[in-house]
Design a protein around this nucleic acid. Structure first.
Length: 492
DNA sequence: TGTGGTTTCC
């Protein structure tokens, strides 16, 4: 067996600290073994037991010591690996199972697919899909759901949609998964359409559906639709679910209703880190930077641990407030807390330094990063160059951005405009020509307005939409009337 | 033995 990481692997959960009770190894020691080996049923139960405790080595040891293993033994270990972050091991174990005399069942696939998603390994996911078809398991609802989710998390919303549509039988999880995939891909309007479709055919939504739908509304600033969904969730008492409440904070703060967001935040009795993060981000987004930073500090007083999102929230607030030293302190604090900075954290720091005009320092930070900077980081640097007119550094940032995001029009236009501003017309033209040769189109700006129950996108330069726009205007001046879009909530 | 969820720079 080569599937298990060595004992020194830091990804394996550390042994519990002295303050925690030790895992009840007595059970392990006192079970009856057949010689040195476990009986299948006892072994499977123990395996899952150690998996739940996060004791991967013990789980693996039980697996190895079993004389006879059935498919449940394999599935259990795949699941233990997958849910404890050993994704490659989970995937490798599925392959080993496939090569063994035992046949793969639906649970084997369901257990391995989240690992593919976590590894962003769509190719392997597709391989499993082929395996599912061959084994005749592709029409099993739970398996189909796992495929919708895997494709979505790998960023392939088309494949996710196809998996959803190909299912003969769907359940609420299928709908939640496809709504999640569309949201993940930024296709919020489509996600809301699916949500409505779900209600129309009387599939009962649950708190997971509601929180995804609210999140889509927040990202579209669709306050009216969001409020309607909020009303419905109140009727079904979903608004007491933490995830729903957190999505509501996100919705209202993204729609500029900071006081309403705060009201919801204050009413949550069991706030978790995401509740705090949503509120801190909300303040930051609305420019209430002092409130954002104060809330961040208050969070610690309440005894909650910051996570990586908390630091993104506070660093971006510092960046917008021009608080360079404070931002640096938070960054160091994050390192001291053993949170490894991600691309996003570096992007925030580059933004913080760059906005303040510390261009050399910003460029040095990008250079010293422990991994290759992504488009967010270079984008932050380019943005800072634009503010401070640093054309040389802008060229460097743009070079990387043209490679990383060749189809993104904004970077070409930004660099070209910078050249034009200082009268370097030849170079400005060259950038435009590059853009043309790569067939990059300028995306028209667009805004969304809700007309009746429909969200309508209005594009810049679009022909006169007189009557439709007038309708919107009427809606706006009449206030935010509740429409009847979601009133046909399925009965429980 | 088992599927779905909130919060992320500009």
């Amino acid at each position: 067996m080569t599937c298990c990481a060595p004992a020194s692997d830091p990804t394996i959960a550390p042994s519990p600290s002295p303050s925690q009770p030790p895992p009840p190894r007595l059970i392990h020691g006192s079970v009856i073994k057949v010689g040195f080996f476990y009986d299948v049923f006892v072994g499977n139960t123990l395996l899952t037991f150690y998996g739940t405790l996060g004791d991967l080595l013990a789980a693996k040891q039980v697996f190895d010591e079993m004389l006879h293993r059935d498919v449940v033994s394999w599935n259990s270990l795949i699941s233990v690996f997958s849910s404890n972050g050993l994704y490659s091991d989970a995937v490798r174990l599925l392959l080993e199972l496939k090569r063994s005399d035992l046949s793969v069942n639906s649970v084997s696939l369901i257990s391995a697919l989240p690992a593919c998603a976590a590894l962003q390994d769509e190719d392997f996911g597709k391989e499993i899909h082929g395996l599912a078809i061959k084994a005749g398991l592709d029409m099993v609802v739970t398996v189909g759901n796992a495929f919708i989710d895997m494709y979505g998390k790998c960023g392939d919303s088309d494949a996710s949609m196809r998996a959803f549509q190909s299912m003969q039988e769907k359940n609420d999880v299928s709908w939640n998964s496809v709504i999640g995939s569309l949201g993940h891909a930024g296709l919020y309007e489509d996600a809301l359409e699916k949500f409505k479709e779900m209600l129309a055919i009387k599939v009962k939504p649950n708190s997971i559906t509601i929180s995804s739908a609210l999140s889509a509304c927040g990202n579209l600033s669709a306050l009216k639709q969001g409020k309607e969904i909020h009303c419905l969730s109140m009727r079904k008492l979903f608004d007491t679910h933490l995830f729903v409440a957190n999505s509501l904070i996100d919705l209202y703060t993204k729609c500029g209703r900071i006081a309403l967001g705060k009201k919801i935040f204050d009413r949550i009795s069991n706030k978790d880190v995401a509740s705090w993060n949503a509120m801190i981000l909300g303040y930051g987004m609305q420019g209430e930077l002092e409130a954002a930073i104060n809330l961040f500090d208050l969070m610690k007083d309440e005894g909650l641990e910051y996570d990586h999102v908390s630091y993104i929230a506070v660093l971006s607030a510092c960046s917008h407030a021009g608080l360079v030293e404070r931002g640096k302190r938070y960054f160091d604090q994050m390192l001291a807390q053993n949170i490894r900075p991600t691309q996003m954290h570096y992007a925030c720091m580059v933004d913080l330094l760059g906005r303040a005009g510390l261009m050399t320092e910003a460029a040095e930070l990008v250079r010293s990063m422990p991994f290759e900077a992504d488009s967010n980081v270079w984008g932050a640097l380019l943005g800072a160059c634009r503010i401070h007119g640093n054309i040389e550094l802008a060229q460097l940032a743009a070079e990387h951005l043209f490679k990383l995001k060749p189809g993104h029009c904004g970077y070409y236009i930004l660099l070209s405009n910078m050249y034009a501003e200082v009268g370097r017309w030849n170079e400005a033209d060259k950038v435009r020509a590059l853009m043309k040769s790569r067939k990059v189109k300028k995306n028209p700006g667009c805004s969304w307005v809700q007309i009746g129950n429909k969200l309508r996108a209005f594009l810049v330069g679009e022909g006169s939409q007189g009557s439709e726009l007038e309708l919107c205007y009427d809606e706006l001046v009449k206030g935010e009337r509740m429409s009847s879009a979601y009133l046909s909530w399925p009965q429980t």
